[in-house]
Design a binder for these strands. Sequence first.
DNA 1: GCTGCATGCGTTTTT
DNA 2: CGCATGCAGC
Length: 666
Amino acid sequence: MALNPQQLAAVKHTDTPLLVLAGAGSGKTGVITEKIAYLINHKQYQPRSIIAVTFTNKAAQEMKERLTKKLGKDLVRHLSVSTFHRLGLNILRESPEPAGLRKGFTILDQSDALAILKELIREQNSPLEERTAQNMISTWKSGFINPKQALASASCDQATSAALLFRDYEQWLRSCNSVDFDDLINLPVQVLTQDEEQRDRWQGRVRHLLVDEYQDTNEAQYALMRLLMDKFGALTVVGDDDQSIYSWRGARPDGLITLKDDYPNLRVIKLEQNYRSSQRILRVANAVISHNPHLFEKKLWSDLGIGDEICVSVCRHGLDEADWVSGQILMRQYQKQCAFSDFAILYRSNFQSRHFEKALREKNIPYQISGGSSFFDKAEVKDMLAYLKLLVNPDDDTAFIRVVNTPRREIGPNTMVKLGEYARGRNTSLFAAAHEMGLETVLSGKPLARVQSFVNWITLQGDNATRGDALDVVKGVFDDINYRDWLESSADTPKHAEKMLASMDELLEWMERLLVDEDQKDRSLNEVVNRLSLHDMLSRQDDGKPLNAVHMLTLHAAKGLEFPQVYMVGMEEELLPHKNSIEDEAIEEERRLAYVGMTRARHSLTLTRCRSRQRYGESSLTEPSRFIADMPPEDVVTIGDTGSNNEERDRQAGTDALASLRELLK
DNA sequence: GCTGCATGCGTTTTT
DNA sequence: CGCATGCAGC
């Protein structure tokens, strides 16, 4: 890769902390990979002394691929390139005890955590909604506030209730030997702070830490970062305040400023040349983002030619929009003889993908949806994962409850309540409680025998899994419980059964692939389960070739990626900017989201909006997104707009009248 | 204790 | 409109 002077300066600056302010498409990932190569090839750094951190598994994966091309497999194997969460997991795995964990601990995803909160809300008769509680707890945790402090500082009833849930939630997690996503950052900080030996180990190892998408770090991640590189480490962080889109997860865009206070010898290098987009795309994107206040002045420019106008297509409704976009893709693909994978459809919310999926399928256009990983939300997949989790960590109550009666073992709610109360009273997991003699005071006869037979079976399978070939054991487990038959009999339709069996095969396929790593070394079942929990898997590719399919993703998931032709859909008020953000007056972040989306485009950018849209089955008229009005008119071509909403309004009035008539007739 | 239907409810973004 | 939860019957 040929570097421009600023990029070169960023690569060669290795002695003091460095902040690279990198605009969209300015080659920041290239700078990170080049710098890693430079450190190894010219500065004689050991690969294992370099740690690179990204925010998504996808980004980590991509960086690894680029590095492999440049440095070869042998070197890359020793490099640490991962998300913050995986890095935290690695630290915890080496030293779980100071964090109050035991080997084999489980990672709960947010739906697992939500289920726990739901149960606690029931127990405590708490007035809170699960999601609200989860958000509050997560915010506390990433700010290093413990339940006691949360309770002490609670200034309203809601905060007090949440703090009480927080207290029991933390206790529940520890007694199940489980961690949530926040713990994967928090607990390592605790370990490195308290355990001197571990701190020395890690600090002795880290010579250079590189953080991509720095604007998205939250306080906990920043603390972890500092702890890791405090002794000998040097630091390179790369970020762009205009692309900060995770403040709802605790990211602090002003962290770019804090850095300067914490590291007075910080060097700042700006990358302002964009190598991705046409001048027109950049001009429009800049016009939109210029309405935001800025921490750093930055003028992004491109010499890739003026390019085509940005097209704004106004459609009648959602189905129309999907139809139009898929038609355009089909036409352009044919005209230009380009790949389907050159196209991307970007949207604000996952639910918007529905219509597009349908339209693309109808036209036989291949597509792939990234993010919104519905796969792990499926009940059958959760069940299977719960079995795996239980083999590795029998104390995982969440998994225990999930699978204890799936398939039916005639262990019903009555038995479970008694077992649960007994376990809570002794502050142990359900699994441990089932082994205690005292359980006979609350359970007896068949129920007791059934519970004991279940836990014995789990113990046996777990032992086998740690000893023998993990895949064989797992397959054996599912055979043993006749899981295939259970799926078939529990499905409402044959079609559904087929889908569930396909999910099962897919998960087994994943496991097979994950059980053997790049070096043909066997991984433990524990490691595989961790990867599945973090959704940290190799991207699904056939024969190692990326598939030729239209990309469909959310604006959040699109960050860091680029596509020759981009369709940004649903450019309407209440979608982008999102309704909640309008209410919260948090428009700046929505504007950055729009900016991120637009700057993904290389050659062509098309925006679409609908005059009316179905919401919860009811259709209603929409307003164009305010961001469209911010674009220079001379760079924009609008099509399909009849100039007013009249026609649509009439149609809408007719539909409404018909609906109310029907309502009356009922 | 389990299966089936009906009502009611809801959608931001991710590790 | 689609999903999940809750109630009523077997």
